[in-house]
Computed example of a mutant assay.
Amino acid sequence: MTLPVRYVEGDATAPVASGPRIIAHVCNDVGGWGAGFVVALSRRGPEPEAAYRTWYRGRATNDFRLGAVQLVPVQVDMWVANMIGQHGLRRAGGRPPVRYEAIEEALGRLAEHALRLGASVHMPRIGCGLAGGEWSRVEPLLRAGLGERGVPVTVYDLPGR
């Protein structure tokens, strides 16, 4: 059963839902953590940042790369999905850091985790902040990667935006 992407006004770091929940966001592939949505995540707890930094440091011997997903437990029945969908930190050659193909791959991996856990997925408009992506290109990836596989998805917009 295909589920629609649900939009709400609120804070994606505090998902409004019962049952298992995954907070998903896009990370870069250069080990940077300190601007954008990750700042709000870090205010909630140290686990996602610490796990990402360890994952990055061990990249020579693990799966850290564009399209990879790291699921980090943060509370009972709540995880953060660090998804590598951004190459670098700034525009290069006129191209923004977002990598749609990596986000698409990461969403497929995220769907597997969500289905295994029976979890809903909660996120800001991934890839569209500092990564420079366009929501009109990301939303179809969400519908195909998660919604068409029966994973409930809620996208949060901060109040006043």
Rank of each mutant, 00 (worst) to 15 (best):
L89P: 05
V153P: 03
V69T: 08
N62F: 08
A51I: 03
R137P: 00
N28A: 04
G67N: 03
W33L: 02
A111Q: 10
R125M: 08
F37A: 09
P48V: 11
V98S: 00
A92R: 15
F64V: 04
Y52P: 01
R59H: 09
V30H: 02
L3T: 09
A144V: 13
Y56M: 05
G108F: 05
A35I: 02
Y56F: 15
Y52F: 15
V5N: 11
R125G: 00
P96W: 01
E148M: 13
R109F: 01
A114F: 11
L141K: 09
M83G: 07
M83Y: 09
G127F: 06
M83V: 04
P124D: 09
W55C: 09
V80A: 11
Q70W: 08
W55I: 11
R57Y: 03
V153Q: 13
A81C: 06
M123V: 05
G10Y: 10
G118N: 07
G45A: 10
L89S: 13
L146N: 14
V121Q: 02
G10P: 05
N82P: 04
S18T: 15
A68W: 10
D29G: 04
L89T: 07
V72Y: 02
Y100V: 01
G129R: 11
S120V: 01
A81G: 05
A60F: 09
F64L: 08
Y7K: 15
R6V: 14
P96D: 01
R53S: 03
Q70D: 13
G132P: 05
V151M: 15
G108W: 05
L107N: 08
R44P: 00
G145E: 10
A144R: 11
M1K: 12
D11P: 02
P4S: 14
G93E: 13
